[in-house]
Amino acid sequence: MGVAETDASTFWQPIDQYVAPVPDKIGTSDVAHVEALTDAMRLVDDKHGGGACRDAIAAQVRWSQQLLTTQMAEVTRKRLLIALADLHVVAGWSSFDLGMHTVAASYFKRALDLSRAGDNWALTATVLYTMARLHLHIGMPGVGLRFLQLGQIAAQSSGSPFMVSLICVNEAWAHAMMDNRRQMEQSLVRAADELHAADDNQPRRWPRFYGQGELHAMTGTAQSALPSADDALLDSARQNLEHSFTERGDEHPRSSALALPILALTDLRLGNIDAGLDRAGRALSAARQINSARIVDRLTPLANHLGAVATTGALDIQAGINALQGAS
């Protein structure tokens, strides 16, 4: 059989844009299917970035939300509400990761409504945390802090010290961005205390990923974000970020890729030029491998500082960052 030459437009257009029908009646096994797909998509998003799975997750949202129109027992309906809320969180997070901030906010808003309808405090706190992270990323720490304060109420209502700690360490980041050192330090102390008091054997679905590695990473991120940080605080930030890589290992490549530019910049600010350039090169390499606009955005402060270092190696990495950002 011969192969004819064809234009790419012959194949890139979808064959159909229909949404498959849902059953007239569902049970817990149908909801478990949604939960399993959500977990699988979350893992792909975490490992490969939002660009690897966002559209697949959005398609799953379009199909799954139809399940609300079917017949089911009340216990199934409540579980479905929670499952759909979690699916919307993953859809929003992958959209956020691609820089689709308005779309992400819409998914998070729907997730918030669903989590409240499902009466799940831990998931409600998670949604408010994601909304806060979006605003911290785009440079609106005051708005982000307000979402975190609401999230703190939900976290405490959930009875999960893991969730309370997660909210606290992100509150510290918001305070740091606004140069509120005392509030930042208070939030970091409470975050560490809450995590220390948490029971690792406690069953939890949210926040599933949070532990010592994330606490170290976010502590270092907050400390390095303080505009008035002195060398002692920056050195503490460096140590916390280094600990985060030891704690996490290779389990969360995107999280590590997000922390690398901050660690590289912290090294450079401390005058550790060789270590800073080595980590800056690794940060650029990681950004090329993971389909995440957030990682690319994180490179901007690093690129600006590399220009001040002005060695050949620094300028080469800066050029690589500029090329990557220009292509994204």
Rank of each mutant, 00 (worst) to 15 (best):
K78H: 13
H101V: 04
W12C: 12
L263T: 11
N304S: 01
L67H: 00
A287Y: 04
Q202R: 14
V296F: 07
T221F: 07
L234A: 06
A117D: 11
S106C: 11
T312S: 13
R254T: 01
Y107I: 11
N201K: 10
A308C: 12
I26Q: 09
W93M: 01
R288K: 14
D278E: 15
P21I: 11
T311K: 10
D267M: 14
T300R: 13
G142D: 14
H243F: 07
A36L: 08
A264G: 05
A323V: 02
L134C: 10
A59G: 06
L80Y: 05
I153L: 10
L67I: 01
D297N: 09
F147R: 10
T10D: 15
Q13N: 12
L145T: 01
F96A: 09
G139N: 04
A8R: 12
M177T: 02
A104T: 07
I290P: 02
L270W: 00
G326D: 00
M1F: 12
T312N: 12
T221M: 09
M1G: 15
H175L: 09
T312R: 11
H175D: 15
T69Q: 12
A308H: 11
T300C: 05
S160G: 00
D86F: 05
A105S: 15
H101T: 02
S165I: 02
A85E: 04
V61T: 11
A172V: 07
A308G: 09
R205Q: 13
E194W: 05
V169W: 00
D113A: 06
L150E: 14
Q289V: 08
V127T: 01
R279A: 06
M218V: 03
D230Q: 02
L128P: 06
G307R: 00
M41W: 14
Q202T: 13
E214V: 02
